[in-house]
Nucleic acid binder design. Sequence first.
DNA 1: ATGAAAGCGCTAACAC
DNA 2: GTGTTAGCGCTTTCAT
Lengths: 345, 345
Amino acid sequence: MRVGSVTIKDVALKAGVSIATVSRVLNNAESVNDDTRARVKAAVDELGYQRNEVARALKVRATRSIGILAPELTNFFFMAVVEAIGRVLAANGYSILVASADGLIDQEKINLQTFIERNVDGLIVAPTGFEGDHFHNRALKNTPIVVIDRQLEGFETDTVITDNRYGIKELLKGLANEGHRRIGFIGGDLTFFTAKERYLGFIDGMDELGLEVDEAFVFTEGLMLQGDGYEQLKKAFEQANPPTTYIIANDSLHIGATTFALQNLTSAQRSTLVFASFDHLSYAPILRYAHYTAGQRLHEIGVETAEILLKRLKGDRSDFPQTVMLRPEINVLDFNGGVPFSHYQ
Amino acid sequence: MRVGSVTIKDVALKAGVSIATVSRVLNNAESVNDDTRARVKAAVDELGYQRNEVARALKVRATRSIGILAPELTNFFFMAVVEAIGRVLAANGYSILVASADGLIDQEKINLQTFIERNVDGLIVAPTGFEGDHFHNRALKNTPIVVIDRQLEGFETDTVITDNRYGIKELLKGLANEGHRRIGFIGGDLTFFTAKERYLGFIDGMDELGLEVDEAFVFTEGLMLQGDGYEQLKKAFEQANPPTTYIIANDSLHIGATTFALQNLTSAQRSTLVFASFDHLSYAPILRYAHYTAGQRLHEIGVETAEILLKRLKGDRSDFPQTVMLRPEINVLDFNGGVPFSHYQ
DNA sequence: ATGAAAGCGCTAACAC
DNA sequence: GTGTTAGCGCTTTCAT
């Protein structure tokens, strides 16, 4: 609130009406004379009046702001989703507050408190952990919350996620179609929702295809970061008889694995290397070795999330709690670093 | 503002003190008896009181919120910078509001209006265009604004940018050291700040090295998007005698150019291809052909920006308007898709 | 159709 | 050290 800024009081004075009338004009109330409306509008323009949303919020008990809780921001998935959410929400008069938890559950709790104090009208949360207990807050009783990307335990609410198992299974089908049987899995620590889902998709998918899972080919250590992908492919190649192909659980692992291949494998080894991975980002065209990718529908996730939230904000509680599961888009990369699709045993 | 939430009034009642005393305890005023302080704190805990920041903001004329205006969110540069800014600001009690202009100058103006109405205490803007006239707003008179990434015309304020010319010149030196003389430039439309600066860095740098700029080797069309990089390298290779190496002005162009090379050049052609480019992102290790990259100091840009803003918010106007120019980090990629550094004529 | 006035929850004089 | 009170800018009854 800037000192000396023009308020409805100034406008009222200038237009020769009461502040109530100014407020009515500002809020497009019908019951106001055309003349006075015009006079008020003229005064608004002349004075360059700009509404004080804070005062309005205090009075009407609604801030028209939505808090977004993310585990991190430096992540293509979140930013793309946030961008889409922001677009839809802005078109409906809402502003967005964002806060990163830096992967720390305690920081998520602090950020939540901040948003509560700021009286956000709604919340979108990409959970940092599994735990959802802290969302059971009295102040949040009437605040719609939609969870994205991961599922929360102990807190029931609307959720928008990618169909992780479907994605992995489709990737698997592609590889199996090419004739692969010795299929490895490069993933992450199963305490993470997406890591677990993608792992389970792999296990189920292999089973459905009638293929044997070789424990030595399954890597589920680490946080699915770039270095983990590097290390895991390294470990795979330390084996006497490594897999002929790999399912990779996300983009970072994929970059890491590709880096290992480029730096440490012989060109003979690389010539038969085949990957299929989750995520499809802007640099996908330069990812050698990838035959298939499962690209998350980032834009749709954002739009869907915003629309569910908007619906709840309007008081529509139908289908609560609603879970929207979006299938990723399966891409067949017809350029694979020069390696033509072929059949392996 | 949630109906029926607990206010300082409830706390006062419970603790048997006045609301002023509650407020004092909440704000850590010294002048309050230890006993009463304890009683108030107990009441706060029991009732689960949470401050209403909106009411506080209205009273003290400060929202402790900072608006971030970006041309887009789905961009590694902005994500990283926003994350760093958010961390520093959050540690100082500020929340951040973000809005993407979607590359539209009119949307940027709308977003600015929204932030003004929300009474943000400060503004960080990564301008969508050159034009800064709309920041001359009466309501913004006492609102610190720091501009990042690009410079604004017609509006003087604190600015944090990358030293684009330095970065390009260093890349050029690297290439010249390898013996290159026929150096191409893949950039973008000069109406963009970074496009122009990087282009000028190229022209100056070539001059300083005593090298001739061949107009046919300079590409400055488009918005520096992936497709542009693809097309520009394509055009270069349509020439009878293309450059032996290329300076590439950003990450998207780099991906595009690399894609063209992978898809359309012979392995003989690729074997001598050398790039040097601006930006150094997570997928840098898999960018073949790149000998040098100029990585922007994303984290530092964010921290520096937040700190200047914080300083202004404290009323410190020293060195205004301040321009911080951060030199990018020059990376020598010792793995280049197997191509050893060598000398070309 | 318009105005007067209460009050959202909080902070900060100002008294005592 | 603590209480009383005014008021931040706005919306919204309730009168007229």
